[in-house]
Design a protein around this nucleic acid. Sequence first.
DNA 1: GCTTGACTCTCCCCTTGGGGCAGATGCTAC
DNA 2: GTAGCATCTGCCCCAAGGGGAGAGTCAAGC
Lengths: 267, 267
Amino acid sequence: MLQIGEFSKICQVSVKTLHHYDRLGLLTPARVDPLTGYRYYLPEQIDTMNYIQRLKRYGFSLEEIQRILALSDERELRLLLRRQKEKLKLEQREMATILNELQTHISVFERTGDIMTVQKSYVIEVKNSPVMHVLTNRAKMGVDEFGKYYGALFERVPRERVTPTGLNGARYYDEEFNSESSDIELFIGIREREKADTVMEACLCAMTVHHGGYSTLSEAYGAIVSWILENGYRIAGAPFELYLKNQFDSLAPEDWETEVYFPIAKQ
Amino acid sequence: MLQIGEFSKICQVSVKTLHHYDRLGLLTPARVDPLTGYRYYLPEQIDTMNYIQRLKRYGFSLEEIQRILALSDERELRLLLRRQKEKLKLEQREMATILNELQTHISVFERTGDIMTVQKSYVIEVKNSPVMHVLTNRAKMGVDEFGKYYGALFERVPRERVTPTGLNGARYYDEEFNSESSDIELFIGIREREKADTVMEACLCAMTVHHGGYSTLSEAYGAIVSWILENGYRIAGAPFELYLKNQFDSLAPEDWETEVYFPIAKQ
DNA sequence: GCTTGACTCTCCCCTTGGGGCAGATGCTAC
DNA sequence: GTAGCATCTGCCCCAAGGGGAGAGTCAAGC
């Protein structure tokens, strides 16, 4: 039997951590002296501890680790490991995108000497939005469910024998930016006016083109809104985006292009 | 002037976050009504908010961001951005290593059907440690200062005209594994017995070879210690490691090799 | 047998970046 | 005048522990 200090040294974790895991029920000592409360561990528990540390490195939370330890189904475990791998890969790609963004930022900063240039370079245009015949799908959704809802929308294309124009986008009705549940209307442009759910008429808009991944998209929104406020217009409707170039064109995030439109009217 | 709700929508951050930033002094509203406490923001503050979100994506903490916003020195800012880039790159490399580890784990698991195999594959040997003549440097250090202290040690090689054998390692005296401050003795093996600081005599050891990066090294320690406890030996001295293959051989972490030695004696 | 120092216990507060809710006002429109 | 939002402050909560206080425990030395 090992005292907590010895066990902690062998496993290279702090005593605090062992207390914590005991309290969570994640790794309870083999024996706890009922009089003194001293914790005693068995050598076999070193393996369990190493396994826990390993799963922690893989990015599982302690709660998930606890479930994994209690798991008897081998297939389920396999599934969880694979899913975690995909999650790590995704994080890695996101980190690569951010690194790219940071590199761009540094270059622009060193060239111009202004730290804000990189996010102020939006050219705002006032023009009529294009007329579009669209299939639409409006729902309360989280931004992570975008793909799911878009999929459902695209399934209608062959079924209803329509021809996509390639102009796809989304309109944000309640702009709370909850990110977990917003009122979003997805749409895909089609040629056939008579088969469309809606015809989006032209309307006067302030718009700009956003280059890059969606994490910086709010900067485009900010740029347009401040332009509107500073130029004597007011927002006259829900804003929408058109996805000109994105991941479905097999492009890296830094090459994506998105048009952001805000319907406006003179004050 | 914008109310907090409008400002929050434009910047796509929650009202809670704006309250939080106000309390931290990170982004204070341009005007706060002294009677009602209502916060009012200027359109220009949208840029600041976007800048903050950008720095947050780059991985700066809110405290760091506050310092950056207060910064007037352009060179210092450049330095901070570059340093952050290096930090992100390091994280990215670490994530790649972990992904590799996870992939190996999944393969071994699918081949053997046992989730623990991958960390139980240490072959423990009982043998005499090699006799080594070494230059040593014992100090309280954090694991992240390893490189620094090793550098100092290697500078002595040309100065004292000694010939490295390529057997380098470290001995851990106080095995608290504080990771921030441990009593560690670094050593590099040399040919010349008479010029050595210490001669490490052969002693009976339980040892194993660890393959892979150092994040899993504690599993080797755990494996040896449980073997010692289960086989009627006791630990008879401070353990040490020999770095056979590592980053200085331009190898990826998964190809590194480390020998771990624990001096032992019969119970 | 006593003391000393090392080890361990529980309990409470702290960290980061906010989220959620309660109860109280404020603002605006009808 | 009042209904329905918007907003305010204040309090507790999350994960994964860290730090320290104050008290009890254990083994060794005298």
